[in-house]
Computed example of a mutant assay.
Amino acid sequence: MNNITIIKASGEKAPFKIEKLISSLQRAGADKTVIDQITEGIEGTLYDGITTKKIYQMAFKMLKSKSRVSASKYKLKKAIMELGPTGFPFEKFVGKILEHEGFQAEVGVIVQGHCVQHEVDVAAIKDNKHYMIECKYHSDQGRFCNVKIPLYIQSRFLDVEKQWEKQLGHQTKFHQGWVYTNTRFTTDAIQFGTCMGLGLVSWDYPKDNSLKYRIDKSGLHPLTALTTLTKAEKTKLLDTGIVLCKELHEKPELLKEIGINKQRHKKILEDSEALCKSI
């Protein structure tokens, strides 16, 4: 199978590596028997030029038939993309992660800078740390955040920081701008952010602080990961202002409010509770 070429979401070509598929299934909690069945099934249908999207769809379908919860974990990246079409649910999602980590987070705030006002996606405070966070949500896996994004955010942050420093008590605070994205950063975006001291968080960067890592660690899965909800039902729940499986488990009455019958409640709540468990 080493001669099979796959097409990534970005259009880039790469050799197929079964180890990557096995690793992703292991992270989803699938046992060895299930993993062996899925990899055997996929290896038998591979062809040169197959897309990673097609491989994912086949693996997800097979995994879902074996374990709904594992399938929900396996589709985590796609589930975050399903928080759209606007970026606001993703901003709320980032705010919830920060709150879980002990920050006081406020989503969608107007902040006065030295020169002009700025609409900030998330403002977060913890101890002496004061962060201005911008969230860049993409519904397409192939779209990366290039260097223009951190350049723009850093200039806004510097204007805000200059105003923050005038406030009483802020002389001892550590101020920093951050960019969160659900896809990836280009190499030059990471280089600029690192050079300027701008915090960067993407799907898989940095390794020990990425979205993927922090969601697995905290158990804060988006409700869009649930395979027991339809797309329309997920949209209705997002419209109520909740974004987490955890919130759904804490407010089960929301299922009734959006018209889901009692027979389905048990499966949905069982899955949401299982997803709340951190690794």
Rank of each mutant, 00 (worst) to 15 (best):
M132V: 15
Y74P: 03
D121Q: 05
D271R: 00
A232F: 06
G102Y: 15
L238A: 06
S72W: 00
K20D: 13
G169L: 04
S70A: 13
T186N: 10
L238D: 09
P150T: 14
K277Y: 07
S72P: 00
L151N: 11
S67D: 14
G108V: 12
V243Q: 01
R184G: 15
K73W: 03
A30S: 02
Q263R: 13
T240V: 11
M196K: 15
L211G: 10
K277F: 05
F144I: 04
E134D: 15
K231C: 07
D121H: 12
Q26L: 09
P222I: 03
K231H: 10
K267Y: 12
I268F: 08
K207W: 13
G259H: 02
T33D: 11
D140N: 14
L255F: 05
I55M: 07
D159M: 12
E40V: 12
K234I: 10
I55A: 07
Y205E: 15
V94P: 05
E43M: 13
I35M: 06
G193R: 05
A232T: 11
A9H: 09
I42P: 05
G241R: 01
K73E: 01
P206S: 00
N209V: 00
T230N: 08
L238H: 05
L25P: 04
N146Q: 05
T230I: 11
N128D: 03
L238P: 12
Y205G: 04
M81L: 10
L237R: 05
G41K: 13
S24A: 15
T52L: 10
T230F: 10
K17T: 01
Y74G: 09
K166D: 01
N146Y: 03
T228K: 02
Q167E: 03
D159R: 12
P15T: 03
E91T: 00
S23F: 12
K251A: 14
K32Y: 04
D188N: 10
A105T: 08
L46S: 08
D31M: 02
A14I: 06
R264A: 14
K129E: 05
R27C: 06
L275H: 00
L211W: 03
H100I: 04
A30Q: 02
T45W: 08
Q171E: 07
E12I: 13
D188T: 12
S210N: 02
K75W: 02
R27A: 11
L244D: 00
G241M: 10
I6T: 14
K256W: 03
K53V: 11
K17D: 12
L158C: 05
T39M: 09
E161L: 06
C145T: 15
G197V: 01
A123H: 12
A232Y: 02
H118R: 11
V69Q: 05
Q141V: 09
H175F: 04
K236F: 10
G169F: 00
V122H: 07
T172I: 06
I258E: 01
D216K: 14
K64W: 08
S278Q: 09
T33Q: 11
G113W: 02
E253K: 09
L269T: 03
Y180V: 05
V34M: 02
I38C: 10
S155W: 06
K13M: 07
T224I: 00
D271W: 00
A232S: 12
K251T: 13
G177L: 11
I38L: 03
L25V: 00
F144Y: 08
H130R: 14
D121A: 08
V160T: 05
D36A: 14
T186E: 06
K77E: 10
N209W: 14
I215C: 03
A123N: 07
V109P: 07
K126E: 01
